[in-house]
């Protein structure tokens, strides 16, 4: 399968520059800076070959949440009254807030999508280690990643077993009790497994830190792409302060 351009970008450079860009966008509050942030994240999505479908999929959940929250945001009282309808009043501040959340969250999700698009999470964590994240934390992240999937599988099995015995027909407290039992089973199993996993790791010489076999090699193009992203981040911050 053909690799997207983003997959050739060195993980360390990608991580540092995109995280800086995310913070730059999170810092903005003025329309010009926010729109520029969104425009740049769209360009990034396009040029890095990130699948737009996946980006839209990732945007769906936060946008639904925003849609759910929008009536509450719109009805928040402010100082400058825009429209007075029979029952409700719409203020400029509430519309500004809705616009801000929409622009900033869309931009950040698009960048986040570029950061993670077809990324090897172990390599990403290795990059995190090389940029100074403590080894203990990286070890926890790596192991958590592995076992989240295992327990999700377990959870699906337990839920199917419960559903086959009409669990879904129960409501209220009895539903809570059954769900508590599923949770309990998952936790006790995991506790016992955690002891075995720990033993298995110590038996293979583990002393609290993960080592990686691969070395990072950055190319000239990695530095150029990162420079472009960092320039964009600087531009957005300047726009916020000067406009």
């Amino acid at each position: 399968m053909k690799k997207a351009p983003i997959q050739f970008w060195d993980y360390r450079w990608k991580l540092v520059s995109l995280v800086i860009l995310i913070f730059a966008i999170a810092y903005t509050g003025k329309p010009a800076a926010m729109i520029s942030g969104l425009a740049f994240s769209l360009l990034l999505t396009f040029f890095t070959g990130t699948n737009p479908g996946e980006a839209v999929k990732n945007l769906k959940t936060p946008l639904y949440l925003l849609l759910f929250m929008s009536p509450f945001i719109i009805l928040t009282p402010g100082r400058e009254l825009l429209w007075q309808l029979p029952v409700v009043k719409i203020y400029r501040e509430s519309l500004d807030l809705l616009f801000t959340i929409l622009l900033k969250s869309t931009s950040i999700i698009l960048i986040f999508n570029a950061l993670l698009y077809k990324a090897d999470l172990t390599r990403l964590m290795q990059a995190m280690k090389t940029v100074g994240i403590p080894g203990k934390l990286i070890s926890i992240l790596i192991s958590t990643y592995r076992y989240i999937f295992l327990y999700r599988k377990d959870l699906v099995k337990l839920s199917i077993a419960a559903k086959l015995r009409a669990h879904s027909k129960r409501r209220g407290f009895s539903h809570l009790l059954t769900s508590a039992d599923i949770m309990l089973t998952l936790l006790v199993r995991s506790y016992e497994q955690s002891e075995r996993v720990q033993a298995a790791m110590v038996m293979r010489g583990y002393r609290g830190e993960f080592y990686f076999a691969e070395k990072f090699k950055s190319k000239f193009s990695d530095k150029i792409i990162s420079l472009v992203v960092l320039m964009a981040a600087t531009g957005i911050i300047l726009m916020e302060n000067l406009c």
Binding site: P134, K136, L137, S139, I140, L141, I142, S143, T144, Y145, R146, Y147, I148, L150, Y151, R152, D154, L155, S159, R170, R171, G172, H175, L176, S179, I182, M183, L186, L187, R189, S190, Y191, Q193, S194, E195, V197, Q198, M201, V202, Y206, R207, G208, E209
Partner: peptide, 29 residues
Amino acid sequence: LKKTEQENIPAVAVMGAAFFTASLIHFRI
């Protein structure tokens, strides 16, 4: 991290993953 002994790391991670997964269970209210 200071309070987490190196040898406890796998246990913390495995239990953490289980808590995370368990929090995905939906309750009907």
